[in-house]
């Protein structure tokens, strides 16, 4: 494997975003790119990352390899990069280590690190193609604020999507709260758009603890996509350049 990423910061942000959900995971490398899939310890949330080969320049992967990496170790090494550094990931056949080289774009500094790999026997889950009943795109900062605000009142949030809009509401010991968003187009700042594409009304309840955790990815993308269908895990997607993505799935809370 040899994969050069213009922005070391991208991988750093991805790792920062998922590190509290998953600890040890396989980075599956093949000629289409680098993918990661892992469930959190409680087995109610799933992280799925895809960095397509187009996100790298150049990208070369001659044989499929799984790089088992401890994310705390990877985070430590990625913190050694400067924010504008270029990152090249390298691994041999049947590797013991993954090699990370940081290059400064405007100086001649080159730093190099190896991270020891681990054997991770990870269950691989099939993620079905799903036509969701509601697809909502909204500013990622807005979603983060809603989740954080409602978490001050309750452990869970009800997300209801109708043709009127999307309503986030909660009920807790001190009282209740709700935020409703309607479709909104901002020509000057499209990252502020709210788009709601609905085929049938949806109402589901989720644990806010997980949603707040997913929102750590907000720095990766100005917009977040929420996809919901009744009795199906919620998909929270942060789109990255070149069709790469970071996705989180969360099983809804179901009545007692």
């Amino acid at each position: 494997l040899e994969a050069r990423l213009e922005q070391a910061n991208l991988l750093k942000k991805v790792v920062d975003a998922i590190k509290d959900l998953v600890q040890d995971c396989n980075f599956d490398c093949n000629d289409s790119g680098i993918a990661l899939q892992a469930m959190d310890n409680s087995h109610v949330a799933l992280v799925s990352m895809m960095l397509k080969s187009e996100s790298f320049s150049p990208f070369r992967c001659d044989r499929n390899i799984a790089l088992g990496i401890n994310l705390t170790s990877l985070q430590k090494v990625l913190r050694c990069a400067n924010s504008e550094d270029i990152l090249t990931l390298k691994a041999e056949d049947a590797p013991d280590v993954v090699n990370l080289v940081f290059e400064s774009a405007d100086s001649d500094r080159l730093s190099e690190y190896d991270i020891k790999l681990m054997d991770i026997d990870q269950e691989h889950l099939g993620i079905p193609e799903t036509e969701y009943a509601a697809n909502i795109s909204m500013p990622s900062a807005e979603f983060q604020k809603i989740c954080r605000d409602l978490m001050a009142l309750s452990e869970s949030v009800a997300i209801e999507c109708t043709k009127e809009g999307v309503k986030f509401s909660c009920n807790g010991d001190i009282g209740s709260g709700s935020v409703t968003l309607r479709s909104h187009t901002n020509v000057d700042k499209p990252e502020n758009n709210v788009e709601i594409d609905l085929t049938e009304p949806v109402a589901l309840t989720f644990s806010l603890k997980y949603l707040v955790n997913f929102c750590k990815a907000s720095g990766l993308s100005g917009q977040v996509k929420l996809c919901l269908s009744n009795e199906v895990p919620l998909l929270v997607e942060y789109g990255l350049a070149s069709n790469s993505y970071l996705r989180f799935y969360l099983a809804p809370k179901i009545g007692d």
């Binding site: 087995h43 949330a45 269950e123 889950l125 799935y249 809804p252 809370k253």
Partner: peptide, 14 residues
């Protein structure tokens, strides 16, 4: 929990 069961049902091991 039901949540765990649901995630397992929806994302079967492949």
């Amino acid at each position: 929990t039901l949540q765990q069961i649901l995630l397992g049902l929806y994302f079967p091991s492949s």
